[in-house]
Design a protein around this nucleic acid. Structure first.
Length: 329
DNA sequence: AAAGGGGCCAACCGCCTCCAC
DNA sequence: TGTGGAGGCGGTTGGCCCCTT
């Protein structure tokens, strides 16, 4: 297939946006939302291609963007997630909802990568460059590998959920970026106003890492929680967003039992089993939410919880590393 | 004061996936 | 089932700004 050039009409403008162009784009999106970016660029009278308009909106004009310096916590999050996910900026962005992937990528390339290098840490592997790994580091590496598998499975499941949902609607100033890493096709301004944006699905690898690990082979265990109260046990809990009222609850228990998820985590073929598990789980959650609330994807979620005090000990490798990096600023 | 160099970041490029037809 | 359009994503670039000499 022949590639279409970025801006196929030679007459289209490139380069930095002028304030009046921003105003035109903003005014249009405030009134109509954004549907087809190509159509939008034509309707606004902007001599810009649709792709350029989309980029300007998502990276700069969106009102929910946090600009300026990255906080310590944000930097720690980026470093940890980069260790888990690599250069998957959109996935990392999902954990820093007010930042754009471009901004995170720039910050990594211009600041964090150099800081790690200075510290003698390979920014790609997140391991010390000149030292053999000690046993505890090997354990951490094993954890990271499993967590990465889990996060990949989670992202795929999220994407599947969004794809299956027909909730492809946005209002002005509402985009897909804040709620999920999954793609979303937008928009029809003539439809009724959509419900508030869904809370992010949170089978959250970062929170799990911070809050739920006790040793190198323990995967946070799933709990069937039918009522909502959170006990002191470490693990993950399928949140009751009405799930307990659904007759799908017994099916959920069956799925979790069938996969014996606590053991799957340790299995050699976890990379195969986990995505299958997530697929079955997301299918069930999707069906359940439809059953209870009609066609909507904002009512189911998976959350994690744990004994944070105890688990703070676990994180020592990463915390030490991050602290070192911060001290070297 | 001017020139050179490096850092930063907004924007672009090209590849990929998804989806409608 | 194949094709093409549209949007998403990650890598790269180019120009502005600041610092140093």
């Amino acid at each position: 297939m022949g590639r279409s050039p970025y801006c196929e009409n030679a007459g289209l403008k490139k380069g930095p946006w002028k304030p009046e162009e921003d105003q035109k784009l903003l005014a249009y999106i405030e009134e109509y939302g954004h549907g087809s970016w190509r159509t939008l660029s034509a309707k606004t009278g902007l001599q810009r291609c649709g792709k350029s308009c989309r980029l300007r909106w998502t990276n700069y004009l969106r009102p929910d963007i946090k600009r300026g310096n990255f906080s310590l916590q944000e930097e720690q999050t980026i470093i940890k997630l980069h260790a888990l996910l690599g250069n998957r900026w959109s996935a990392i962005r999902a954990h820093l909802p007010k930042r754009t992937d471009n901004e995170i990528k720039n910050h990594w390339n211009t600041h964090l990568k150099k800081r790690l290098t200075k510290m003698g840490i390979d920014p790609m592997t997140h391991k010390p460059k000149s030292h053999a790994l000690c046993p505890s580091q090997l354990k951490d590496a094993a954890n990271l590998s499993h967590m990465a598998q889990w996060e990949n499975a989670r992202l795929e499941a999220e994407a599947r959920l969004v794809r299956k949902s027909n909730l492809h609607v946005s209002t002005p100033f509402q985009t897909q970026l804040g709620s999920s890493a999954a793609p979303a096709r937008l928009v029809n301004k003539d439809l009724a106003p959509p419900p508030p944006p869904p809370p992010p699905l949170c089978l959250d690898v970062l929170t799990a890492w911070q809050g739920s690990f006790t040793n190198s082979t323990s995967m946070p265990s799933f709990q069937y929680n039918n009522g909502g109260a959170c006990d002191e046990t470490m693990g993950m809990r399928v949140e009751d967003h009405g799930f307990g009222k659904s007759n799908k609850f017994s099916e959920l228990k069956e799925i979790i039992d069938a996969y014996n998820i606590g053991e799957v985590w340790k299995a050699e073929n976890a990379n195969v089993l986990l995505p299958n598990f997530m697929e079955d789980l997301s299918d069930l959650l999707f069906e359940s939410s439809n059953e209870l609330y009609g066609n909507s994807n904002n009512v189911v979620g998976i959350s994690c919880y744990g004994d944070f005090e105890e688990n703070n000990k676990i994180d020592s490798h990463w915390n030490n590393m991050v602290n070192l990096v911060n001290c070297s600023k």
